[in-house]
Simulated scan of single mutants.
Amino acid sequence: MAFAQPSLKGRALRLLAMREHSRAELERKLRAHEQEPGTLKRALDELQARGFIDEQRVADSVVNRRAPRLGAGRIKQELQAKGLDAERVALAVASLKATEVERAREVWRKKFGELPADAAARAKQARFLAARGFAGDVIRRVLGGDDTLG
């Protein structure tokens, strides 16, 4: 007994049940399953019209999930990779700027907890923060020990 393949809409809903996906992500993941040209677009149009696909929810989800561990630079890359429009990405990144130093300090504190003893340790800590998408000025503030480290 052969099982019927799930519809494109069914596949999209299954993906959306796991986490928020942008329309571009769903198109990329489901394109191989489209058997008739245009059916994927129609299915995604319907899901978007019903509110199942919401680009703002995708942006909010990424920011809320990733901000405690990553800087604005890395989050911006992730949002762009999801195919979100430039204005939405810019707004999301701008919202992160106010807490960037505190978030970087907390990430640094969990990993290292004490200021570097020498240039090699300082470089290692700076690379760690840079790899997580924190900007150079933020890294300098964290490793410079200015403000309070508490």
Results as ranks from 00 to 15, higher is better:
76 K>N: 05
56 Q>W: 08
41 K>D: 06
98 A>G: 04
2 A>W: 10
29 K>F: 13
28 R>V: 03
8 L>I: 14
111 K>H: 14
98 A>W: 00
101 V>S: 08
65 R>D: 13
80 Q>C: 01
36 E>Y: 07
1 M>L: 03
13 L>M: 15
121 A>N: 05
111 K>F: 08
118 D>F: 12
22 S>I: 04
63 V>T: 07
147 D>T: 06
123 A>R: 12
118 D>G: 14
90 A>K: 13
95 S>T: 04
93 V>F: 03
132 R>V: 09
87 E>A: 14
67 A>R: 12
15 L>F: 04
110 K>R: 15
46 E>Q: 14
139 I>F: 10
11 R>M: 14
142 V>R: 01
99 T>F: 00
69 R>L: 12
104 A>F: 10
54 D>N: 15
42 R>Y: 02
121 A>Q: 15
146 D>Q: 11
91 L>W: 03
52 F>H: 14
112 F>R: 01
136 G>T: 12
25 E>N: 03
43 A>C: 05
69 R>E: 13
81 A>E: 15
85 D>A: 09
83 G>Q: 12
35 Q>A: 09
71 G>M: 02
122 R>Y: 14
57 R>M: 03
14 R>L: 09
55 E>P: 02
57 R>G: 08
74 R>E: 15
144 G>A: 01
16 L>V: 04
26 L>F: 05
52 F>Q: 10
92 A>S: 15
18 M>E: 15
50 R>S: 14
112 F>K: 06
53 I>D: 03
102 E>Q: 09
38 G>P: 05
53 I>Q: 01
149 L>Q: 06
121 A>M: 11
74 R>L: 15
66 R>E: 15
94 A>G: 05
137 D>V: 04
27 E>K: 13
75 I>Y: 09
6 P>N: 12
132 R>N: 09
68 P>G: 10
112 F>L: 11
150 G>V: 13
47 L>S: 02
79 L>N: 07
28 R>P: 02
77 Q>L: 13
124 K>G: 12
78 E>N: 02
130 A>Q: 10
16 L>I: 07
10 G>T: 11
114 E>Q: 13
136 G>I: 00
84 L>S: 03
60 D>L: 08
39 T>M: 05
92 A>N: 07
61 S>A: 13
135 A>S: 08
55 E>M: 10
8 L>P: 07
87 E>G: 04
58 V>I: 09
132 R>M: 12
112 F>W: 15
40 L>N: 04
96 L>Q: 04
125 Q>V: 05
55 E>K: 02
136 G>Q: 00
142 V>K: 05
26 L>S: 02
117 A>C: 04
50 R>F: 11
16 L>K: 08
10 G>K: 01
141 R>D: 01
136 G>V: 06
92 A>C: 09
130 A>P: 03
129 L>V: 06
20 E>C: 10
104 A>Q: 01
140 R>H: 01
92 A>T: 09
84 L>F: 12
52 F>C: 01
82 K>N: 01
8 L>V: 11
147 D>E: 15
22 S>M: 09
14 R>I: 03
134 F>A: 07
115 L>F: 08
42 R>T: 12
130 A>T: 11
65 R>A: 14
103 R>E: 00
